[in-house]
Measured scan of single mutants.
Amino acid sequence: DETGKFLVLSLYDYQEKSPREVTMKKGDILTLLNSTNKDWWKVEVNGRQGFVPAAYVKFL
């Protein structure tokens, strides 16, 4: 199980638009929880879990 094993870097600021999403700032290091959807990845940032656009992050 690779859940929570990968870190990704936020390339852009992102403001959550729904309760299922999370806000991140450019340069944030996020824990990747799920990347099965090619468009939206589930991450943990600042103690919160939610989705961010996959195009806004990259693997470290």
Rank of each mutant, 00 (worst) to 15 (best):
K58A: 14
N46Q: 09
R20D: 13
P19D: 12
Y56T: 08
K5I: 13
K42R: 10
K58H: 10
G47I: 02
T31L: 15
I29C: 07
L60T: 07
P53C: 06
S18T: 12
Y14D: 02
T23V: 04
K38R: 11
M24Y: 02
W41M: 04
E2L: 14
F59A: 11
A54S: 14
V8T: 03
N34P: 03
G4N: 13
F51P: 00
P19V: 10
V22C: 06
Q15W: 12
L7N: 06
D13M: 03
K25C: 09
L33M: 07
N34L: 08
T3R: 13
E44R: 06
A54H: 03
T31M: 12
K5T: 12
N46I: 04
P19N: 10
N37S: 09
V57P: 00
W41D: 00
Q49Y: 07
A55D: 10
V45F: 13
T31N: 08
V43T: 00
S35F: 11
R20T: 12
W41N: 00
L33G: 00
Y12C: 15
L9V: 15
Q15T: 14
E21V: 05
D13T: 05
V57Q: 00
G50S: 01
A54L: 02
Y14Q: 01
E21R: 04
N37F: 07
E16R: 11
T31F: 11
Y14R: 02
V8L: 15
Q15F: 14
S10H: 04
V57E: 00
A54G: 04
R48K: 12
W40D: 00
I29R: 05
V52P: 01
L7W: 10
V43Y: 00
K42H: 11
V22N: 02
Q15Y: 14
V45P: 00
W40Q: 02
K25V: 09
L7Q: 10
D39E: 12
K25R: 12
P19M: 09
L32Y: 02
Q49D: 06
E2N: 14
V57T: 03
N37T: 06
V57M: 06
L9Q: 12
F6E: 10
D13C: 06
V22T: 05
G47Q: 05
L60W: 10
M24D: 00
K58T: 15
G47S: 05
G50M: 04
Y56W: 06
L33P: 00
S18A: 08
K5V: 13
Y12H: 14
K17I: 07
R48T: 07
V43H: 00
V52H: 01
K38I: 08
S10N: 03
K26M: 08
I29F: 06
F6T: 13
D39Y: 15
K42N: 06
E2H: 15
K17Q: 13
T36I: 09
D28T: 07
K26A: 13
Q15S: 12
N37L: 09
D1C: 15
V8D: 00
F6L: 14
D39T: 12
T36M: 10
Y56A: 12
F51N: 03
V45H: 13
L9W: 05
L7D: 04
L11E: 05
Q15A: 12
V52G: 01
L33D: 00
A55Y: 10
L9M: 13
K38H: 11
R20C: 15
D1K: 13
T3N: 13
L30S: 02
G4Y: 12
P19G: 09
E16M: 11
W41F: 09
D28G: 03
F59N: 08
E44V: 07
S10L: 08
K58F: 09
S18W: 06
D28V: 05
V43I: 08
T3G: 14
T31S: 08
T36W: 10
V57H: 00
D28E: 12
K26S: 07
K58R: 12
D1Q: 14
D28L: 05
A54V: 06
V45Y: 09
R48G: 04
V8I: 09
W40A: 01
S18G: 12
P19I: 09
T23G: 09
K58L: 11
N37R: 09
G27Q: 02
K58W: 08
K5C: 15
N34W: 07
K5Y: 13
F51T: 02
V22L: 13
Y56P: 00
M24K: 01
K58Q: 15
I29S: 03
E44G: 05
L11R: 04
E2Y: 10
R48E: 06
W41I: 08
V43N: 00
Y12N: 10
E44C: 10
K38C: 11
S10D: 02
W41Q: 00
R48N: 07
G50T: 01
V52K: 00
E21M: 05
K25T: 09
G47K: 05
D13R: 01
I29V: 12
D39F: 15
L60P: 05
K58M: 14
G50E: 01
E2W: 08
K25A: 09
R48I: 09
K25N: 09
G4L: 13
P53S: 03
T23A: 07
N46F: 07
G27Y: 04
I29M: 07
Y12V: 13
Q49F: 08
K26N: 03
D13H: 05
K17W: 04
Q49N: 06
G50N: 01
L30M: 15
N46C: 08
D13A: 06
L30G: 08
G27S: 03
S10G: 09
N37G: 10
R20N: 15
L30A: 08
E21C: 07
K5R: 14
K17F: 05
R20P: 05
G47D: 07
K5S: 11
K38Q: 11
L7A: 06
T31D: 04
V8Y: 09
V22Y: 02
T23P: 06
N46Y: 07
D28A: 07
L32Q: 00
Y14G: 02
W40R: 01
G50F: 04
V22R: 01
E21P: 03
K42Q: 13
K58E: 15
T31V: 15
K58Y: 10
Y56H: 08
L9Y: 11
G27P: 00
G27V: 01
F6K: 13
P19E: 12
T3V: 13
G50L: 03
M24E: 00
V57G: 00
M24A: 02
V45N: 10
A54I: 04
R20E: 12
P53L: 04
Q15M: 12
W41P: 01
L32D: 00
L7V: 08
D39Q: 10
V52F: 02
